[in-house]
Write a protein that binds this DNA or RNA. Structure first.
Lengths: 117, 117
DNA sequence: TGATTATTTGAATATATAATAATAGATTAG
DNA sequence: CTAATCTATTATTATATATTCAAATAATCA
């Protein structure tokens, strides 16, 4: 396993390492969408989405094809969906432990009434 | 899916987004190792490995337990191995296309004699 | 104590992010 | 046709974060 390959892998994960980009991939996992639709679903500004799409495009994770006025984006590999699913499982296992964030999340959504005993 | 959860996911992938850290995880996927052994296997300096281990520890991806002089590191979740495996499949599928790096890799290792037809 | 193992710190450099503004192509109304 | 509009991308720049390397620290062992 050479060094360039390691760098390549790192760059791939780096492409996923952004809240908006993950959100975009989750949206595209449900089906192809135009930039405008992605914006609406995510609730984010146009140029921000476009910037992150560019990062994903550069890493060959998504591709966009022009359709008249719009550009429709699609995942280049359905395995991305599986990757996100595996990641989600990891979140649900051990990693959750330390998270003050998730503790709050729990209080907000699961146990809205009871005090912390 | 709230914003903090997205940020959490992004941070997780960010922890993987480094050549040395990926290398470390690949080593630990084969079995628990001391820092010194990891260094040797990877061919990297001590403090560098320790720094990256700290990042992985902070994200709860690995944990280290002291054993006398040494510290033995272990993956906190075997699903990490599966994640890396899925990622590898993705590399082997579509993503490889654009890579000049991988083209070189191919020429060096797979097709040493034949010219590009 | 001296050697080994590991972590931590600090500082210089590099890279990524976010927000705004500028640009470009396609469509539609006048 | 051409001007205005909608869609999307790109460029710019200030700020924040990450990386790297070297040196200092800490704990254990022989």
């Amino acid at each position: 396993m050479n060094l360039e390959m390691q760098q390549f892998k790192a760059d791939f994960f780096k492409a996923l390492a952004h809240p908006l980009r993950i959100r975009i991939l989750e949206v595209l996992a449900e089906g192809d969408q135009s930039v405008n639709e992605i914006q609406t679903l995510i609730g984010s500004e146009g140029s921000a989405v476009s910037q992150q799409l560019q990062v994903l495009r550069a890493k060959n994770i998504v591709s966009g094809t022009k359709d008249g006025n719009k550009v429709i984006y699609t995942l280049k590999d359905p395995m991305i969906i599986e990757l996100l699913a595996v990641a989600k499982q990891i979140f649900n296992n051990h990693l959750v432990d330390t998270l003050t964030i998730l503790d709050k999340f729990k209080e907000d959504e699961d146990v809205p009434v009871s005090p912390k005993n």
